[in-house]
Amino acid sequence: MWLPDVLHVAFVPTGLCLCTVDPVRRKVREYNEIALGQSAAVAGESSWQPWVDALAAWLCERPRQRFNVSVVLPDGLVRYQVLPWRSGISISAEWQAYAAYRFREVYGERAATWRFQVALTPPGETALATAIDAKLLEALRGVVSKPSKLVSVQPRFVAGYNHWRQKLKGKSCWFATHEHGRVCLGFIQQGRWQVVRNESCAELSSQGMAELLHRLDLTLDESARSAPVFCTGEFADEAPQSSLAGHSLHSLRLPVDGHPGRHQMAMARGL
């Protein structure tokens, strides 16, 4: 049976990165970057429409092609919470209801229009929950219609952590993603999420990252105050292997070895 190409799509502050990949040979067939006039990630959570419209136009130009589509969203369109373990909750629907309750506690009626996803964990452990505008998910499903299929929608922070989690396995460390106008930072203690912060920032500097770490350090135990920081994105490129007020900074990057296809695939996967 003929397999559809994989289409990786990353919504980035400046536009879209799109990469089609042969599902068998795992080689890049086509790579495109589409520039948008305004950064929706900076403008606000309701301004995702230009990205969706650009993706729709790209797909309309290829009406006979079939894709399995995976989309990575910028963290500016996402809300995060670390859910404490709660006995009696076991199945996915119960976790969804628990997440909805916790988000409503923090954000009020705004959370009524969001959709929630919880990364299920073993009994007794915390769980990372995300909230995304339900209309955005509906719009993506409408745009990616037959013969193509929408197979995955992930926030950038989650996509990055899922890719690098084996490298971080068993560590007590900070994990961060950074793109223009936004930093998302979380502390993991031996595989368990303790806290996640998703904040806007005009321009992240070493001092700004150190101040954010210091604020979060005060809410956690001693192990967080000297734990290493593993970072993807723009900040990792600018300040690799440096120190942040007692925290060592380590850049996480895919080894592209000058290979343009690998770099293009990493861009479209939000890595």
Rank of each mutant, 00 (worst) to 15 (best):
S152W: 03
R156M: 07
L140M: 09
S145Q: 14
E138A: 15
P123L: 10
V118I: 12
I132L: 13
V153H: 00
A111M: 15
A119K: 08
A119M: 10
T121C: 14
A159D: 07
T130V: 12
K146D: 12
A127C: 14
K146V: 11
P155N: 03
Q154L: 15
P147D: 14
A127E: 09
Q117I: 01
P147W: 15
L136A: 08
P123C: 10
S148V: 15
G142Y: 06
W114C: 05
G108V: 06
A139V: 05
A134F: 10
A131D: 07
L120K: 03
R156D: 05
R110A: 12
T113K: 14
K149W: 11
A119C: 04
T130N: 00
G108S: 11
K135Q: 15
S145I: 09
V118L: 01
L136M: 15
L140P: 02
T113R: 14
Q154P: 02
S148Y: 01
F116W: 02
L120Y: 04
K135F: 06
L150I: 03
L140S: 00
A159L: 04
T130R: 04
Q154N: 08
G108Y: 03
R141E: 13
V153I: 12
L120M: 15
D133P: 07
R110D: 10
R156L: 08
S148K: 09
W114H: 08
P155S: 02
A112S: 11
L120S: 12
A112V: 07
E125I: 03
V153F: 05
P123R: 08
I132N: 03
L137M: 11
L136W: 02
A134G: 15
F157W: 10
E138N: 11
G108Q: 04
G142N: 09
G108D: 05
Q117M: 01
A139I: 01
A112H: 11
W114A: 07
L150Y: 06
G124L: 12
K149N: 08
T126V: 12
E125L: 13
K149M: 11
R110W: 04
G142A: 09
R141G: 13
T113E: 14
L150R: 01
V118A: 06
K146S: 15
A111N: 07
L128D: 01
S145F: 10
P147F: 14
V143E: 00
V144T: 05
K135L: 11
L150F: 09
T121D: 03
F116D: 02
P122Q: 13
D133G: 06
L128W: 05
A119L: 13
T126Y: 06
S145P: 06
T126R: 13
V151Q: 09
Q154Y: 03
S148F: 09
V151E: 12
F116S: 00
P123M: 10
F116K: 00
R115Y: 04
